[in-house]
Design a protein around this nucleic acid. Structure first.
Lengths: 226, 226
DNA sequence: TCAAACCGTTAAGAAGGCGTCAAGATCGGT
DNA sequence: ACCGATCTTGACGCCTTCTTAACGGTTTGA
């Protein structure tokens, strides 16, 4: 049974969605504002989230980034605003789709099916703990230990390490690192990478000047070797 | 570099998309109809496909199902029809997103980023490892091993090898190598090819002066023999 | 046979990328 | 408003990679 979290402050729309979704066999959870949406997402683990922008308490993009900090659940944004910059903002914050009101119920349902299909095609799997030499990297709790001692990482450092570890063994291009950690506007700031890779090596590598795990491929990108 | 396949029969729109995408650092491939779109997708392995409905030869939904038979590459559908049933049909056929014309370029770009982000977050993982004698060439990790030992390649060396291996057995013209690796302005610099093919042979071939895998076809181009 | 075009090989200079350190600038919490 | 943590920015030396040049071998066609 697919579980949908619907976030909207309009009780009427909420009710309409609830009826339609329930009729199609979805289990429906609801939240009237951003705070309770984040709370519900964390505790109920829905399969997909339908999120209305223009909530009373939080900015829409903040809700999305708040979710994306720890979850990859598909997010479909609803909004009355047809303005193109709103769409760009929401999508770049991590939304999967953007539907402008008024919308046809069957279109929303189709987009919902598409989102769920994608997500279930690539099962997220249990976030494993990756071992590499003296390092243990726990993707779920976002914690790194070295010889059993917890190593503190800044958000940016973690973002880089997580991306590399999630693609372990693979070459990750500089462009991809920059767009996924800093955003699509930072694609040319390759200098950031040099600074942060040096920091990561100092914290994680046995010998920072002869890295065994965080490997540079000159001109191409970086690679995490287990 | 993210590779986008744009499928549209309107040369004007095609040109506009090409310019905008190229300016954002995408590599743009194009196809004017459904048949050539399927062919291009099979041979060029784009990272994402932008598909206009209403093509001259095939029905849009058929193109989508044709692709979904063997590929999970994200598909973004463009269409002039706002009719809800068209959207449902396309999305249920396997499309990832549906944008109605006229559309804002930045919205399309944002949806493109969202699609690529999703796809790269869940690695498809069916990039094959090509074996050739003592060589193992891993297209996914961009790593080459010879007798089990990792061989380091420069970006240019890898670009040439990847192109040849992706067309293994087939002849790749000098012009194609130069345009894809160096860019369209270098089509006459055939000397580069000689220098780099020599380097590749020295690194990869058992006997560099009697190559078994990296074969020269004089006056035409090069060929990779497994 | 000779000349011209093409290819392979090597090496060296030029250009740009990389690692490193450290000093502002910014952000977040108290 | 302050303070500590974190993120940006700049400077500099080193090293990889790209480009270019020079030379010899091989094939092709007159």
């Amino acid at each position: 049974m697919t579980r949908v979290l619907v976030v909207d402050d309009d009780p009427q729309l909420l009710r309409a969605l609830k009826i339609n979704l329930a009729a199609r066999g979805y289990t429906v959870l609801t939240a009237p504002d951003g705070t309770r949406a984040l709370h519900a997402a964390a505790h109920e683990h829905p399969d997909v989230i339908v999120l209305d922008l223009g909530l009373p308490d939080l900015d829409g993009a903040d809700v999305i980034t708040g979710l994306r900090g720890w979850s990859t659940t598909p997010i479909i944004v609803l909004s009355a605003r047809t303005d193109s910059s709103d769409k760009v903002e929401a999508l770049d914050a991590g939304a999967d789709d953007y539907v402008t009101k008024p919308f046809g119920m069957d279109e929303l349902l189709a987009r919902l099916r598409a989102a769920v299909r994608r997500a279930s095609a690539n099962p997220t799997g249990n976030e494993p703990v990756v071992h590499a030499g003296a390092l243990d990297i726990d993707l779920a709790t976002k914690q790194v230990t070295r010889d059993g001692v917890v190593v503190h990482l800044t958000p940016t450092e973690w973002g880089i390490l997580e991306l590399l570890v999630r693609h372990q063994g693979k070459l990750v291009s500089q462009r991809q690192l920059l767009t996924e950690v800093w955003g699509p506007l930072y694609q040319t700031e390759t200098h950031y990478l040099r600074v942060y890779l040096a920091q990561l090596r100092r914290k994680l590598e046995p010998d920072a000047s002869h890295p065994r795990h965080l490997i540079t491929e000159p001109g191409m990108g970086y690679r995490f070797n287990p």
